[in-house]
């Protein structure tokens, strides 16, 4: 028994064809969102840059050391690998400290979501969020300060190089100082110092551990902070 093909009213017949562009657009948007989330969350900072109102700042790299993970390593080659890794880490920490301490669009709002992208997903990022008081200018910075300017920053990097000559892990020791002016006009020196433990992921260097202290000091009347800005 053959069933004659049903004929649909013209409007109904067109409806599925109309949905295709919508479906395609939806799928495209989903892919874009997924890609954005992937690059934002995969660690290594994901290319996040501070806003245009952020004062210039760069750590002064005061030391780089390559630690060979294999005996009879070519010390020169290890040093070159460490130097390259240190440059990348330098860039990552410059951006992170600008976002964490100097970007007014972050500290005035007391929100530092783009800082946590520099940490590994999972435990490291969630712990970093819990340690926001220490790792950033702080959630209440906007109601405390009227201005924050970098004072100085030093960075030293040690890089573990594996038997294949690849950098696999690094420690970055930092001392960062900024002059913060309170809403009432008084000032203080914001001091952040410690170590970041980093490893290299697809998206670049990412922080998987840290041991960082904040030790802010009152600003002395005679102090004239000289910028390490660049």
């Amino acid at each position: 028994m053959s069933v004659p093909p049903e004929t649909l009213p013209a409007e109904q017949a067109r409806t599925p064809r109309k949905k295709w562009p919508l479906i395609a657009a939806g799928a495209g948007a989903a892919i874009v969102v997924a890609l954005v989330l992937f690059f934002a969350l995969r660690g290594g900072g994901g290319g996040v840059n501070p806003s245009s109102g952020t004062p210039a700042f760069s750590f002064k790299l005061i030391g780089t050391k390559g630690v060979p993970g294999v005996s009879h390593a070519d010390r020169g080659a290890i040093g070159a690998v460490a130097d390259n890794a240190a440059k990348d880490i330098h860039d990552v920490l410059d951006r992170m400290y600008k976002l964490a301490f100097l970007d007014p669009s972050n500290w005035k709002a007391g929100k530092y979501d783009n800082v946590f992208g520099f940490f590994d997903l999972g435990a490291s990022a969630s712990r970093a969020k819990a340690d926001v008081d220490t790792l950033t200018l702080g959630p209440d910075a906007g109601s405390t300060f009227s201005d924050v300017q970098p004072s100085s920053g030093t960075l030293s990097v040690e890089v573990l190089v594996d038997k294949g000559g690849q950098p696999v892990s690094a420690t970055a020791s930092v001392v960062f100082k900024a002059k913060a002016t309170g809403n009432g006009g008084a000032g203080e020196i914001v001091v952040s110092k410690g170590q970041y433990f980093m490893h290299i992921l697809e998206g670049g260097w990412s922080i998987f551990g840290y041991s960082v202290a904040r030790d802010d000091r009152p600003l002395k009347a005679t102090s004239t902070p000289s910028g390490a800005s660049s």
Binding site: T134, G182, A186, G194, S211, R217
Partner: peptide, 13 residues
């Protein structure tokens, strides 16, 4: 007026 400094604090993971 003086800023109220937070006591030194650390974070470790």
């Amino acid at each position: 007026p003086l800023l109220v400094l937070k006591a030194a604090h650390t974070a470790q993971f």
